[in-house]
Design a protein around this nucleic acid. Sequence first.
DNA 1: CATCTGTTATACATATAATATAACAGATAT
DNA 2: ATATCTGTTATATTATATGTATAACAGATG
Lengths: 131, 131
Amino acid sequence: MMIELDLQSEIPIYTQLMDQIIEGIASGRLEPGESLPSVRSLASDIGINLHTVNKAYTLLKQEGFIQVHRKKGVIVVQKEEMPQVTEHYLAKLGQQLRPVVAESLCRGLNQEQLTEIIARLYNDIQPQDKE
Amino acid sequence: MMIELDLQSEIPIYTQLMDQIIEGIASGRLEPGESLPSVRSLASDIGINLHTVNKAYTLLKQEGFIQVHRKKGVIVVQKEEMPQVTEHYLAKLGQQLRPVVAESLCRGLNQEQLTEIIARLYNDIQPQDKE
DNA sequence: CATCTGTTATACATATAATATAACAGATAT
DNA sequence: ATATCTGTTATATTATATGTATAACAGATG
């Protein structure tokens, strides 16, 4: 699993890590049941502190994307255990997208154009057919 | 202009202020040329420090949504001067929406459903016809 | 002339982010 | 069994972001 970080970004490193792992799952590059590197080895690989990796793992665990077994280590949850579309998630989504839509309206980016951007992101991230 | 702040939110006050003013413009409740309250009076009204309001105003000015005249005070820019859809804005939008789409894919919220949420926000915010 | 304006400077308190070092208990492999 | 690797927890330090507080300046207003 390739991890690309922007250490100059205003987005916290642990957030970038979470985003990349979630996108890895969404794209199929990380499959359910697959194990993630240990906090120490991943931290060492990308040159950051182990606590930063641990924070990302802990939050991903809290949100239900990964599990930690004493034996198997850190693994991506099975498809049936994957977090669903809850009311809480929909509420968070609305609050997050509201300012985005408002600014789009101000700048004259209409609904169809924003929808097209969303569509492109779906196609960009979604698992591609192999061979 | 009604301002509603959540002082318990993890979203900075100056960001909430910017969001509400931009949504005010998007909804038509704030019209081009309309003047905004002074940093001191707005700060006093909502019970926060004047520097917090000043930071929001300064950033909104930098992004091109408002102007500051020595005479007229702080005003919403004219329609022709409103920030447009620039390459820089589209890039920011993509980076912002990418993690949103990735998590949607993981949770099984498909493209049509997310598009529907966007549509609802557009209708929610957009200026309503007056009689 | 007094008052209001945005703006700037300085200082302080608090919270978050990231790093550093250390230790503990369970699991693994030599 | 012993050394190593695992996630986890604790403590400390540094840097940055946020929000507040007080003060001052120059332009505009009545």
